[in-house]
């Protein structure tokens, strides 16, 4: 460390031009950068890309050139890692006490949190497109190498629904992370959710009905098969309200009121 005295050249109390508040897009850029400027962030991003590509390639080799089946495999990795990405994004500032600096720089906490949520949601879309690209390439190559006809069964609607489902799992992670402000707790809830609903669904008719309306993984499934009925839509809406909208609202309220220490 250099110990020499540095001449002070600061400008004292010079007035700052009006309109110095950070525009929203600047906050989004800062929050996007925070996702990849630490080693742990980079590892998670690499894992997301690596697991997606690896699972698509492996499945393609095993089942042959069937595009939709190959693409669907990527959903397993994405379904696990994307909620974690969402959770870590919104809990990191509390874990690492960086909220002290972040909310001193921008006291409008609601804007910061909104800016924080956008990059992971965009990442879910990007990861879905990456999986699609990998699935198309694998399908073409496997068909070419094995001299068998490729099955192109990915309709635009299916792709849209599948991407939407991936966005929903990130949103669930963001919502639970914001509500609980604690990464391990939120991850446990995310992981335990499907197990719990499996048990609830076996608790007689009322349990089955409950799981049918509140198990987000189950209600989002028709999205990816593009055969959504009105009833499916209603069930999806209810589970999204329960797992995403409500915890997000409660979490935002908590963050805005919370004492930052």
């Amino acid at each position: 460390m250099s110990e020499h005295m540095v001449p002070v050249t600061e400008g004292g109390g010079a007035p700052v031009a009006a309109g110095a508040r950070a525009p929203f897009r600047r906050l989004v850029a800062v929050e996007a950068r925070k996702l990849v400027d630490t080693r742990s962030g980079l590892i998670l991003a690499a894992l997301l890309v690596g697991l997606t590509v690896a699972s698509v390639v492996a499945r393609g080799v095993v089942v042959g050139p069937r595009a939709l089946t190959v693409l669907g495999t990527a959903g397993i990795g994405l379904g696990t890692l994307l909620p974690v990405l969402g959770i870590l994004t919104v809990t990191a500032e509390w874990t690492h006490h960086t909220a002290l600096t972040t909310f001193a720089l921008e006291p409008r906490r609601m804007r910061v949190l909104a800016a924080k949520c956008l990059p992971p949601l965009i990442a879910a879309v990007a990861a879905s497109l990456l999986a699609l690209l990998a699935a198309v390439l694998v399908t073409v190559i496997v068909a070419e190498v094995r001299h068998v006809p490729a099955t192109w069964d990915i309709s635009p609607l299916v792709l849209l629904g599948w991407t939407g489902a991936n966005v929903l799992v990130v949103a669930e992670g963001l919502a639970l992370g914001m509500l609980l402000m604690n990464a391990p707790a939120a991850i446990v809830v995310c992981v335990a959710g499907p197990v719990m609903w499996g048990i609830v669904a076996r608790l007689g008719t009322s349990g089955e009905v409950l799981a049918g309306w509140l198990d987000l993984n189950a209600t989002a499934a028709p999205l990816a098969s593009a055969d959504m009925t009105g009833g499916d839509l209603a069930r999806l809406a209810v589970s999204v309200a329960f797992w995403i909208a409500a915890p997000t609202a409660a979490g935002l309220r908590r963050a805005v009121r919370r004492e930052v220490t």
Partner: peptide
């Protein structure tokens, strides 16, 4: 308007991501 331009703050020494 732009509070952090006018007021510089420093809180706990652990307020930076390790």
């Amino acid at each position: 308007d732009g509070p952090a331009h006018r007021v510089g703050t420093m809180f706990a020494p652990n307020a930076y991501h390790p």
